[in-house]
Amino acid sequence: MLAKRIIPCLDIKDSRTVKGVNFVDLVDAGDPVELAKYYSENGADELVFLDITATKEDRRTFAKLVDEISENINIPFTVGGGIKTKEDVEILLKNGADKVSINSYAVSNPDFINELASNFGSQCIVVAIDAKFIDNDWYVYLVGGRIKTEIKLFNWAKEVEKRGAGEILFTSMDHDGTKNGFACKALEELSQKVNIPIIASGGAGKIKHFNEVFKSGNIDAVLAASVFHFNEIGLKELKIELNNNNIPIRL
């Protein structure tokens, strides 16, 4: 049986791990390679590394760090942040990343999704979507949550699937950093509207939140950062608890 995945996310700035509460206050939480190794040895199913300042400062992603991560860990990982060209992706995959995640650039250049899918296969293309609930609808935000668009979440999700995305990483900006639970309703609707795996992000605070989000919708994976980085939730403890609740988990 295909297991539900638990994915610690490492936001990277200047080769260090950070986590923004509601994307604003940044707190240093360690060395990415050490953290990655620790997580891979303690039950993480996958890891995501987001170069959070990449889009804003137009930085190209961090190929060297990717190579170092690949050398040290034996589980899959996704890399995102500032990816704008086929060549960016080629370097990251060549250096050992399994998947790449694109966000803002895909919104302004949707054909980029098609280009990447046809060159590298859908299986390594994750489209990350940040959205906020305003006036009864979910709107897509860009550049780490700084710029609002008029694009609606569910329309955009269906479009990225059609264009060849292999997976959607959905972050609710209303929930991110609150530690009050995930955007279960929106995730449930999202999983009904698209037929590719969905990673839920934003709002992890307690073990019961993971339980809720796996039970409520057809979600494939959950991504979280600070609860893991600051050891508020132990990965092993979390996975045992989920397994006890009949959620298929790799122990």
Partner: peptide, 30 residues
Amino acid sequence: KVPQIGWNTLFNLKTSLFDSIKEKEYMYLV
């Protein structure tokens, strides 16, 4: 949901390739 992404279990293991690997062990697929 296509692609299948994640850890899935193995069954009906044959040959020495699977020495020390048990039935229902998880491996990563995409």
